[in-house]
Simulated assay, not measured.
Amino acid sequence: MSVTGTPERIPVTVHGDDPLVLAGLTHHLRASPLIEVRNPMGAGQGPTGVAVTAVTAVAVLATERIEEPVLGALSRTGPVVLVVPRLSESELLTVLDSGVAAVLYRHEVTAGSLRDAVRTAARHGRELPNAAVGQLIDTVLRLRRESATPAEDIRPPRGRELDVLRLLADGLETREIAQLLDCSERTVKNVLHGVTARFRLRNRTHAVAYALRAGYL
């Protein structure tokens, strides 16, 4: 809220390679009095072209390809709203691991849905399309079915390992877990690596699904 009592506008930067898609997104964003489009990206420009502002901006990225380095770089500068045609299972997991705040499927984008996604991202919330939520649930259930029962000689997770797994199951990111446990992000990653290596799991989502199935959480 500003000193005049009116809501502060949310600064937004727009990223992507397709000029027509960028123009459409920018038009939708400018239709909302709650959003201020800053430094809209031109065709072919990347996230490094965004000027630094005093207020952390929400980045809207329209892309055909999920590139983890780009998502990670944008997420480190502020919340990201991702606009994509569709996500495969592996892409969905990559997006969630990269810390993207909201996902919109391109054919479902309207001025209202884009505004709501930006507001959710600005509040550091999470938003996924209904289809992606169902896909994520199916993935977790499949991973739970595929998780093998550990051999008796493998030590079950305990102590900090359980703390990390519980916080992951609650949807927290590595940075947030490190803050809550008063440790470094590297420590959290090392704990996760130890669990996934010991139980031969593929990634953090698989680790949470395994811990739930095995009754550790």
Rank of each mutant, 00 (worst) to 15 (best):
A73D: 10
L104N: 10
L71A: 06
L181Y: 00
V109F: 12
L93G: 01
G78E: 00
G44S: 02
H124R: 11
E36T: 05
G171R: 05
L136Q: 03
G46N: 09
E8P: 00
V55L: 02
A207W: 09
Q135Y: 05
V60Q: 07
G49D: 01
L61F: 14
V12I: 03
G72D: 11
V84N: 05
P33W: 09
R65D: 11
Y210A: 14
V58G: 00
E127Y: 11
A178S: 11
R202F: 09
R126W: 04
R86V: 11
T110D: 03
N39A: 09
D17S: 13
L181K: 00
T187P: 01
A197Q: 15
V50H: 01
A121C: 06
V118A: 02
G134Q: 08
V50K: 01
P79A: 02
P85I: 08
A51V: 11
S147Y: 15
R166T: 07
A169V: 08
L165I: 07
E185Q: 12
E173D: 11
T4N: 12
G5A: 04
P33T: 09
G159A: 05
E91L: 07
R9L: 06
T187C: 00
E185R: 12
A121I: 10
V118P: 04
L167P: 01
V58N: 03
L92S: 05
D18Q: 09
L61E: 13
T205E: 07
V133M: 11
I35P: 00
R126L: 07
P85E: 15
V191M: 06
L180N: 01
I35F: 02
L165R: 01
L114H: 08
D138I: 08
V50S: 03
V3Y: 04
M41G: 14
S88K: 13
M41D: 02
G72E: 14
V164Y: 02
G215T: 12
S184N: 10
T77D: 09
L212N: 03
R145G: 15
Q179L: 14
H124S: 13
V80N: 06
P156K: 12
A131C: 12
E152P: 11
P150Y: 12
A102T: 04
R145Q: 14
P156H: 08
M41V: 12
V100I: 14
V80T: 07
I10R: 02
L114I: 10
T139Y: 12
R142S: 14
L201G: 12
T48N: 05
H107M: 13
L61K: 07
N39L: 04
E68T: 13
M41C: 10
D97P: 01
H206K: 09
L192E: 09
A101E: 01
T94H: 04
L181M: 01
H15N: 15
T205W: 08
G42P: 03
A132T: 06
N190V: 06
G46H: 10
V164T: 01
